[in-house]
Amino acid sequence: MKLLIIEDEAKTGEYLRKGLTEAGFSVSLANNGLDGHHLAVTETFELIILDVMLPDIDGWQILRSLRERHCDTATLFLTARDSVDDRVKGLELGADDYLVKPFAFAELLARVRTLLRRGQPKSELDEMHIADLTLDLKRRVAHRNKQRINLTNKEFALLELMLRRQGEVLPRSLIASQVWDMNFDSDTNVIDVAIRRLRSKIDDDFETKLIHTVRGMGYVLDAQREI
């Protein structure tokens, strides 16, 4: 998976490159708009992460130019200005998603993965598995080691989300948004409690723990994680 980051702020660019490389992507970094634009049109990328405020040609122009060349590479733009106009402008120009600075890295990673997944045919699964946990999406029941686990609707939705994105660290805000449709950053520990309850149902009685807390970032569903 090849990604292109166009970001003029050296530190930001460097940590994005490092973080995304470590997450398993092959990352190119451009420190200005011209280089970025050149790379974007000469090479093929799966995703472009684009800063709006660039010293030479700004992100909007790059995006417009790419779309004019019928280059449909998924684009996620980063902006420090969180105004509705900016967002609307970006989305109208054909950006696929946006993230307002400052953002949590886990949030960025989650969005990147969502965008990359978008291109792939959506698999309509009837069942999902991890280790000995099975989720029957049709009948909406969960089993672990052949034992039936009773889950509430929301718990089921939460587990489904974590299974669909297993191995990814899911930030609390993303969980709140996807499961409860709370599209704002709430600073309560509601998500922690909900995860704790889910954990008590699927993990407490079993040797292998599946849900892991990534301190300061969020939660991840993984069969072989050691933290």
């Binding site: 929301k154 409860w180 309850r197």
Partner: peptide
């Protein structure tokens, strides 16, 4: 209702 669903686990705890 949506909000109380959301807060239910915390409230119970």
């Amino acid at each position: 209702k949506a909000l109380t669903d959301y807060f239910e686990p915390l409230a119970e705890e």
